[in-house]
Write a protein that binds this DNA or RNA. Structure first.
Lengths: 334, 334
DNA sequence: CACTATACCCAAAACGTTTTGGTTTGGCAA
DNA sequence: TTGCCAAACCAAAACGTTTTGGGTATAGTG
């Protein structure tokens, strides 16, 4: 059926050792036989089997890409897609394969994360989209398998992470709003089970305190990162606190929902209420007014995560926590 | 290092044959020894190696997911992410693994699609995001490897496809505009190298002709599926044809760009110009006015593609062309 | 001529499974 | 006793590679 190294060897009149060595660029095979072998291989359409290779080499050159709750992650694509692209490009460039892993049921029975990975002999894993209260969290953190989390600050012997410097991102954002003269600044945060929410909250608090402004608990609302959540949170904020002149959102999606709500209430953005988002998704440029936001480098996060994992795998580097700098992009909404 | 079936066998005092058979649910191993084996395996943390298994079984239980131009596909996430989720969920459910494949350079040298897949012994491939003029197209079509394209109508002995019924989608959409009294209806299509563009154009033409309306060539513009493309195309259309009262777009992104343009020109949607998009991306609900659109079932497309591929693999079914029904969702923009 | 160095090549073992074609054991009927 | 059967187990081959530890010429050197 499939053509093997043995077929090539027979056809070329050499041993399989020689074929193998010819293919792997060893020096102890003459130019002549090498040419012959390559030519025979070509004519037979021979492709070396990675699985046989993996078996004997005891390494698969492949890592898992774990995306939590793939199917029930509305709006997740705005963030995750670019990260995946970054991870993919970097790993593919280094010759590593990517296998998709999910936390959801496979074959109807729940298979443990670590079982899945060791059965496939994955050499490492990149984890994304996971909540802090996800039951798999523990497993990932404790596994003796090199892994790096994206927006998931777990650090251990085998486990590093990459995320945007959310404390500073939020801090810079709020600081900008303050610099524009705002004093009553609301904050619509994401849900508390996202690591980023914790940091962004701290950034907000820090910026307010640094400016000598009081941090009022009921200026802060936890929502869901999505447009509708931003809308309802905004309504609540504005009804209870008419003095508010600016709102900072922990995601662009919520900010877009917020702008919509504000405009529906007959107020102007940024005239009456300034709006600042977080993420810099493509659509921020296309809403009216154009959304100001704290930008995350999503593709670069993927690349950084891949690099960290490769560092562990290839050069036994220690995992760490890598923070990528955010940047402020001011458009029209603030 | 890693614990193998041999370790389990030794520790349990049986042969590796018996361990294997115990694990695979054969009947000729007594309850007692089976219990013993399972217990030993548990205590040793034994996990059978899929790679050894693949080698002897001559099947990997894994398929490729090929995403064309992963990194240079702005806006692609709106469509591709959900499809990927569908493909993933279905295949994971059936116990198949997914390996990411891209058309881009791996290890700096261009590796052929078919080489990539056979080296890894992938059993099939699902291809998405590919243009008709992609150099890989030919290769996919001619490969003796079961594959199904998404929005890529190539049909051969080994190659099927899944797409939305774009002819009817466009036809229904335009028909709706006509039913609302519009007679001068522009069409902003995607680029001609996308299979869907061909079909949507035909749908537009059909609907116009069925209503006895003339199809004017310069009412039709080919653009790029993206917001900015929609914006410029709209400006062009409206400047040259002030009589136009409705525009149909081949993507929601372009429709959103179009609405922005129309509003910038001081006209009202849908009062002056009615707008109808295509895709039903999440943001259509959150622009003002809310976007009317032809909805595609993205997740279901992924599931259908996975199902077709599995049908070929598991039950030797013939590949075919599966068309999923679109549906009209009318909101405020038309 | 004997010895050594070099260039080229190869047999066999190993990787961790599955499966084939057995063997062994004990029980039971004739 | 013998023969037969079923239940429980196993040795060995196979899957397609890589690598180790050689071997055999040929050419060069003293």
């Amino acid at each position: 059926m499939t053509v093997t190294i043995r077929d090539v060897a027979r056809q070329a009149g050499v041993s399989i050792t020689t074929v193998s060595r010819a293919f792997n660029g060893y020096q102890d095979v003459s130019e002549e036989t090498k040419k012959k072998i390559l030519q025979v291989a070509e004519s037979l359409n021979y492709r070396p089997s990675r699985v046989a290779r993996s078996l004997v080499l005891q390494q698969t050159q492949s890592v898992g890409l774990m995306i939590s709750d793939f199917n029930v992650n509305p709006g997740g694509h705005h963030f995750l897609f670019d990260v995946i692209a970054g991870v993919h490009d970097r790993l593919a460039y280094l010759g590593y394969d990517i296998t998709l892993v999910s936390t959801t049921t496979a074959r109807q029975r729940l298979i443990s994360y670590i079982d899945f990975c060791t059965e496939r002999r994955l050499e490492g894993v990149i984890v994304m989209g996971m909540r802090l209260d996800d039951p798999y969290m523990q497993e990932v953190a404790e596994a003796k398998l090199p892994s790096v989390g994206i927006d998931l600050p777990i650090l251990s012997r085998y486990c590093g992470y990459v995320m945007t410097d959310n404390v500073n991102g939020a801090r810079q954002g709020v600081r900008y709003l303050i610099s524009q003269g705002h004093r009553s600044i609301g904050f619509v945060n994401g849900h508390a089970q996202a690591a980023v929410s914790v940091d962004r909250l701290r950034g907000y608090q820090t910026a307010m305190q640094e400016a000598g402004l009081e941090v009022k608990e009921d200026w802060i609302i936890h929502s869901n990162f999505l447009v509708d959540g931003g809308e309802t949170a905004t309504r609540q904020l504005l009804q209870n606190h008419p003095e508010m002149t600016a709102i900072f959102y922990a995601s662009d999606l919520m900010a877009i929902g917020g702008m919509r709500c504000i405009q529906r209430m007959g107020k102007k953005v940024p005239g009456d209420i300034a709006v600042l988002g977080y993420d810099n998704i493509d659509l921020g440029e296309w809403v009216t007014p154009m959304l100001s936001t704290v930008a995350q480098k999503r593709y670069e996060m993927g690349v950084a995560a891949a690099d960290m994992l490769m560092g562990m795998l290839l050069r036994q580097e220690e995992p760490g926590g890598r923070l990528l700098p955010p940047s402020l992009v001011i458009r029209e909404s603030s």
